[in-house]
Design a protein around this nucleic acid. Structure first.
Length: 421
RNA sequence: GCGAUCGUAGCUCAGUUGGUUAGAGCGCCGGUUUGUGGUACCGGAGGUCGAGGGUUCGAACCCCUUCGAUCGCCCCA
């Protein structure tokens, strides 16, 4: 890519987007593949949904005052003049799909999906404008067992990804609608009395999203958040019982959790169970997986009352915890050390691949350096095709005895030699 | 949206108080050596020092603007 005096300017990538390659891309793929595997163990069904929806799908379900809706959505008019939005999350679109496709017939349904999401935010570590999540939801299930199943799934996923160490499950309940509302009113009353002493951010939150004051990091807010009204005092008997059955289920399934009374969710549709799997290894973006119950969402989209629970996890964040993953190593490399052998090398390498052996060919560049280059790729076996004294020579060298595909490699090689006689 | 740090070859970086044709290692390409060998030596390609403007006799270095990255705030997964 030497552009010297080229007058053409290369367009740059959009801010907050990423091009993922090599070991990082392998880690990304590992997260998705592990999710797919585990999700099948729990019999969650795969869904694919559009990347964009009518704007109302998100504005109605997330809440007009949330930051996501008020300032972070990628919204635009299409050529027909309709306001559309690139999905900032999965749940709203999934609820819409549930309604417009009549998935009530399958209820309760366990659903899983993954893909890109878009939010106009300031990029930083673990936060992008196009980011990716895996997502699991149970729609049409009112029982606490659904919450438990989802949480156990999440727990197993993190364990199978090998990143469960240092990740803790923070659990809270926001109560049912009356509990949540009573608590909310009490919080507003309480914080309003101290309004002038709160941070500017929290004064603002008081109007828009009072629950959020509870997890403010501002030291000026700390003295007040400690003594703020507790959800436990506003929980109805039903809500209390519900939460008790969730925690009992987690204990029975052997999932560790800690109560986080200040844990709230940013989006309006959450009820009852709220949770986050949190790590301290990702700096400010410590939430690795989060979600909760959203019994009110489907009604907000004009559907019948439909209880549901779900969670989402950022693939980039999970991939960062996973670390770099090695790429597939070639079991065998075929080297054409002589121009005359290039065609034969091409034939042999495709025979290896058809036999299911991961293989690579080296047949370009200086013939004298090809063998060295092949060896640097560190294969388990190396086939050299050359011409000595006018006669073709073929050798198979095993550099690592007893590797996985060893038998197949020698079988394919022997057949090739026989064929060339 | 706010604050801070940063931006030199493909990669990791050096570049002294602003001073002649901007460097190293690795990688890449080629030659010699080796000839069953991942060696050693030599050579080469590749940079308008993120971009634009300014100060100056002179800017990679100082100033402004802009783009991008990183780290906080905010938000959230």
């Amino acid at each position: 890519m030497s552009s010297k005096t080229s007058a053409i300017e290369t367009p740059q990538a959009i801010r907050g987007t990423q091009d993922i390659f090599g070991p990082d891309a392998e880690a990304f793929g590992f997260v998705v593949e592990t999710f797919e595997r585990v999700r099948k163990l729990y019999r969650f069904r795969r869904v694919e949904m559009p990347v964009f929806e009518k704007t109302a799908v998100f504005s109605r379900s997330l809440g007009e005052t949330t930051d996501v809706v008020s300032k972070e959505m990628y919204s635009f008019e299409d050529r027909g003049g309709e306001s559309l939005t690139l999905r900032p999350e999965f749940t709203a679109g999934l609820a819409r799909a549930y309604l417009t496709n009549g998935w009530q017939q399958y209820a309760p349904v366990k659903l899983a999906t993954h893909g890109p999401l878009f939010r106009y935010e300031r990029p930083q570590k673990g936060r992008y404008r196009q980011f990716h999540q895996i997502d699991a939801e149970i729609v049409g299930a009112a029982e606490p067992q659904a919450d438990v199943e989802l949480l156990v799934l999440a727990d197993q996923l993190l364990k199978e990804l090998g990143i469960a160490d240092g990740v803790t499950l923070q659990l809270n309940t926001l109560g049912d609608a009356p509990s949540r509302e009573a608590w909310r009113v009490a919080l507003i009353d309480y914080f309003r009395a101290h309004r002038a002493e709160l941070s500017e951010d929290s004064q603002d939150r008081l109007e828009r999203n009072p629950l959020r004051i509870l997890d403010s990091k501002d030291p000026r807010d700390k003295p007040f958040t400690a003594d703020a009204p507790k959800i436990d005092n506003y929980l109805s008997a039903e809500a209390q019982d519900f939460f008790g059955r969730v925690t009992a289920g987690l204990d029975a399934a052997g999932v560790a959790w800690t109560r986080a009374p200040a844990l709230v969710r940013g989006l309006d549709y959450y009820r009852h169970t709220a949770f986050e799997f949190v790590t301290d290894r990702l700096g400010a973006q410590g939430t690795v997986l989060g979600g909760g119950r959203y019994d009110g969402l489907i009604e907000a989209l004009g559907g019948p009352h439909t209880p549901a629970v779900g969670w989402a996890a950022g693939i980039e964040r999970l991939a960062m915890l996973v670390g770099e993953k090695g790429e597939a190593r070639a079991y065998v490399i075929v080297v054409a050390e002589n121009a005359e052998q290039e065609v034969a090398a091409l034939r042999l390498v495709s025979q290896f691949r058809r036999a299911g052996v991961c293989a690579e060919i080296v047949a370009t560049g200086s013939p004298r350096k090809r063998f060295d280059r092949a060896k640097k790729l560190n294969p388990a076996a190396l086939v050299s095709l050359d011409v000595r004294d006018g006669a073709p020579t073929r050798s198979l060298r095993v550099l690592e005895a007893g590797f996985a595909a060893a038998d197949r490699v020698s079988a394919v090689f022997d057949a090739f030699v026989a064929e060339q006689q």
